[in-house]
């Protein structure tokens, strides 16, 4: 092959680089699909955030954010969820290395911190309802309970999924399809923490300081 022909072939292959080589592998497809699903979940939360932002002043003569929110408890919740997310990251590394013990342990830690978070949130909700500040009290409280409760519901369903995942690894081992589900679970769990960042800022901090 002459030099020019080789150069031509090389430039040709460079030009072809971004061209498409056919269907992606299953891990990419599954991860991407779940990623799109998560974006749709973000939009659900966006609607609830919008409702909260519009209704936050409609206290109907009842208590407002200043009187209700206890930032210390929120800070502890935030910490618990953050550690839970971290443990979930460790679990996906353990899964990647096919270490069953590591995976179970990390998932268990994830679950414990998730449970702490849920416990604190339920405790907060009970306290509000006790004070007569339940979701039926005002538009503000309806929006608050729905937005924060929807996040809590996601965490609860995530816990159900978490234990199902542990059972799957126990029964089937680190098969490819199980690995893909672990990837989706960790995406889900991390995404919930991102939404929580929005909640503690826009609901609690804005509520108390603005």
């Amino acid at each position: 092959m002459s030099a020019t022909a080789a150069a031509h072939a090389a430039s040709h292959s460079v030009a072809r680089m971004p061209s498409h080589t056919g269907p992606a592998n299953k891990r990419i497809v599954t991860g991407y699909g779940f990623w799109i699903f998560l974006l749709s979940d973000f939009v659900i939360f966006a609607s609830l955030f919008a409702a909260f932002a519009v209704l936050v002043h409609n206290t109907n003569g009842g208590p407002g954010p200043h009187e209700l929110f206890d930032l210390k408890s929120v800070a502890v919740e935030t910490g618990a969820l953050l550690l839970s997310t971290y443990a979930c990251g460790l679990a996906s590394i353990a899964a990647h290395r096919r270490s069953a013990i590591g995976f179970y342990l990390a998932m268990l830690v994830t679950a414990i911190f998730g449970a702490v978070f849920l416990g604190l949130e339920i405790n907060e909700f009970y306290g509000f309802i006790d004070k007569g500040a339940g979701p039926q009290r005002s538009g503000f409280l309806s929006a608050f309970f729905t937005l924060v409760g929807c996040h809590g519901l996601h965490v609860s369903l995530g816990m159900l999924w978490l234990f199902t995942m542990i059972a799957q690894v126990f029964a089937k081992g680190f098969r490819d399809d199980i690995q893909r589900r672990i990837l989706c679970f960790s995406l889900f769990w991390h995404a919930l923490d991102i939404i929580w960042v929005g909640i503690f800022t826009a609901v609690y901090l804005y509520g108390v300081y603005l």
């Binding site: 080589t21 992606a24 960790s186 995406l187």
Partner: peptide, 13 residues
Amino acid sequence: MSDARQILETAPG
């Protein structure tokens, strides 16, 4: 599927 593709794409997460 192919190796070239593997380099060009990653699953989220």
